[in-house]
Design a binder for these strands. Structure first.
Lengths: 217, 217
DNA sequence: GATTTATGAATGAAGG
DNA sequence: CCTTCATTCATAAATC
C-alpha cells in the first residue's frame, strides 16, 4: 500500500506519536514517570511501528485534507457557504444548529403517521420517493430519512408488543459472556480509564496472562 | 480546552485526538490557529472515528503494557475492570457463544477497508477464505462475516452515489442543513480509493476562516 | 445543566 | 446482487 512506502519518512512521526501515547494528557492513566522507557522487544516494536504507520498516514492526510480544503473551499461549492447563516429559518421550529440528524417537522410527522397507518405495509422504493417528494414541501427531508423513519416505526411497533411478555423466567438465561474478545458488545462498565477512543472499543487484549512475547498484532 | 469536560461523548474524544493530530509538534503541518473546529462532515467524521479507533486500540494496549512492565511484581493485579474481564476468552478463540452479531475490531475493519478499496471488486470464495484466515489473527471472525461485510459494503457504496437533489420545491424554504446526514452527499467518485485513510478528495471541509465558527457539536 | 428518554441512523445478517 | 429485518449506537428532545 501507499503507506508502506511512506513508512520510512514517518518513523519520526511515529516516535512523536508514541510520545503522545505515553503522555495522554487526558488521563488514560500512567501517571508515573519514566515514560520513555522501552517496554517492548525490538520485534514487538517493529510490529507496533508498522501499525502506527497507518495512523501516521492518517495524520498526514488529515493535515493534507485540511490544507486542501482551506485552499479550495470554493471547489466544493457554496454548499458550505450558505449553510445556516440564515437567522430566518425559524420555520418548522427547527434549530439552526440542527445539522446532525434530521428531525421531522410536526407536519411531516403527521403525514408520515398517516401514511403508516394507511396500511401501506410495504413502502416500496417508488412509494418512498413519492412520499419524500411530498414531504419535501414541508421541510428538508431525504428519501433516506423517510426510509429510516418507516423502518424504525415498524420495528418500534413490533417490539412494543413483545416487551410486555418478556419477563417470563429467563428460559434462555444467558448471563454469559460477551464475545471472546468482545468489542462493543460489552456493556459499558465503569470506564475508570479515560476512553480515548470511541468507547474504547474494548479492544481485544490477549489472555489475562498477557505474555508479552506473543501479541500478534 | 474547555471541551475536556467529561461528557463521555465520543465526539469530544475525537476532538481531543484531532487536536493532537493537528498539533504535531514535529511540524507535519498546519501551524495556524483554530485547531479544533469541525472541519469534516459528520459522515467523514464517522469514518475518521473508525480509523482512530485503530489507533486507540494500540494506544490502550501500549499503556497496558507499559503499566504491566513497570509493575511486573503485580501482574495478577492488572485486571482492570474494563480489560479482558472475560474468563472464557481464548486468544484466537473461534468459539463464540454469543448470540450477538459480529462486530469487526478496529484493526479488522481497517484491513477490510483496505482490501475493499484494493479493487478486487469481487471477493471470490477463495479470497474470502484467505481474508478470513488473516483476520482471524485479529479477532474472532468467520467467512460468512467477511462475505456479508463485503456485500454490505458494496451495496452501501453504491447507494451513496445517488444523491437526488430532489429537495427543490421548498415552498417553505427551509434553509437548513444541506445534508442532514443523509449519507448520500459524500462525493464518492472515482477517487474513492483510499478509504482506510480519509483523503482530501473525499472531504470537503469547512475552513476555519469562514467565520461562522459557531459550531456547537 | 446533568440525566433520561425518544428516535434517527448505522450495520450485521437473512431472504430472495 | 438487492432488499429487508433486527439490533445497536448516537443524539435531539424531554425531564428532573
Amino acid at each position: 500500500m501507499e503507506w508502506q512506502q511512506q513508512q520510512q519518512q514517518q518513523i519520526q512521526n511515529q516516535q512523536q506519536i508514541i510520545h503522545h501515547l505515553q503522555n495522554p494528557e487526558d488521563g488514560i492513566g500512567n501517571g508515573n514517570g519514566g515514560l520513555y522507557v522501552k517496554v517492548m522487544t525490538d520485534e514487538q516494536m517493529e510490529l507496533l511501528r508498522r501499525q502506527i504507520a497507518v495512523y501516521a498516514t492518517i495524520c498526514e492526510q488529515l493535515v493534507e485534507m485540511h490544507k486542501a480544503v482551506t485552499a479550495q473551499q470554493d471547489l466544493t461549492g457554496m454548499r458550505l457557504g450558505n449553510f445556516y447563516c440564515d437567522p430566518f429559518m425559524a420555520s418548522g421550529g427547527h434549530k439552526i444548529t440542527a445539522r446532525q440528524r434530521w428531525t421531522p417537522t410536526p407536519v411531516q410527522l403527521q403525514m408520515l403517521e398517516r401514511i403508516f397507518e394507511e396500511g401501506t405495509g410495504t413502502p416500496c422504493k417508488q412509494k418512498i420517493k413519492e412520499i419524500t417528494m411530498e414531504l419535501t414541501q414541508h421541510g428538508q427531508i431525504s428519501e433516506t430519512n423517510v426510509y429510516n423513519w418507516f423502518q424504525n416505526r415498524r420495528a418500534r411497533s413490533k417490539r412494543k408488543q413483545s416487551v410486555p411478555a418478556q419477563n417470563n423466567g429467563e428460559s434462555e438465561a444467558e448471563p454469559e459472556v460477551e464475545s471472546p474478545r468482545d468489542e462493543k458488545t460489552k456493556p459499558e462498565d465503569i470506564m475508570s480509564l479515560d476512553n480515548s477512543a470511541p468507547r474504547a472499543e474494548n479492544m481485544y487484549l490477549q489472555s489475562p496472562e498477557l505474555g508479552f512475547g506473543n501479541f500478534d498484532w
